[in-house]
Design a protein around this nucleic acid. Structure first.
Lengths: 128, 128
DNA sequence: GGTTATCTACGACGTTACGTAGTAGATGCT
DNA sequence: AGCATCTACTACGTAACGTCGTAGATAACC
């Protein structure tokens, strides 16, 4: 149950890029690996990536494990989970939930509406 | 459709309080009116409220119209609309929308799930 | 075992958002 | 004219974040 919430600050641009690397990778990545990936597109100091990864860990968005003298980072939860959390959060801030949900479904594409129905149906059959 | 966007920064605490005043009011409010309301709970300088209202206007969250020498502010869109926008935004940032939606409906309360179904049903009957 | 390559830890600086407020000048009431 | 009221503009402190540098630990190398 959620109640009194600390709104999760949306990630900064670099933080998001780094998270995307982690989400895209099959396993945990070292600072160097993330740095190398990002270096394909932009120039960043190794320590910059390290700092970002470190801050993300402090925010509990990543977890890390030792691998020799280096750390390996991985996303603490899947990208879709974070998205769902943010959606929940937004809903929690709405005054009238019904109204907010109506507006929300009014904004989504037909395809997304279908996915929503599907998800609800699945939920129903699992819970009765 | 959606792709890379400018994430609407979540409001600061005071900004949120001010928006709530505007959302709660029937019409547009002057700085003084908002200030008086807030003063019931906390102590704030008149100009502080003015600054916040001004910044909210720059962010297009409020609109203002002249009323004599004063400005009257009103929320640019209903609270529920903003919530819906934030939900959309969160969804846009998810990798796999289906997955994100599944997780989202998995998080909502039974009541909210019912509201969602209702909203979807209404949408369907209106659009066919 | 000393040299070299790696890593991490920690600090630092610039920018931007936001909470908070003061001052100056315009505007309007009496 | 004189006072109240309102806006415009400026300012300052804090915190997040982008961005790095330096120092010291550690592992690898010859």
């Amino acid at each position: 149950m959620a109640s009194e919430e600390k709104a999760p600050r949306p990630l900064g641009d670099l933080e998001r890029l780094v998270m995307e690397q982690l989400w895209a990778a099959p396993g945990a990545l070292t600072v160097r690996e993330v740095h190398e990936q990002l270096s394909l597109t932009r120039e960043l100091a190794y320590t910059t990536v390290m700092t970002v990864l470190d801050r993300l860990a402090k925010k509990r968005l990543t977890e890390r494990e030792r691998d020799g003298k280096a750390w390996r980072y991985r996303a603490a939860s899947p990208r879709e989970e974070l998205a769902a959390d943010l959606m929940r959060d937004a809903l929690d801030r709405a005054g009238d939930r019904r109204e907010a949900l109506v507006r929300f479904v009014g904004q989504v594409s037909d395809e997304e509406a279908a996915l929503l129905r599907e998800a609800l149906a699945r939920l129903e059959e699992r819970e009765g």
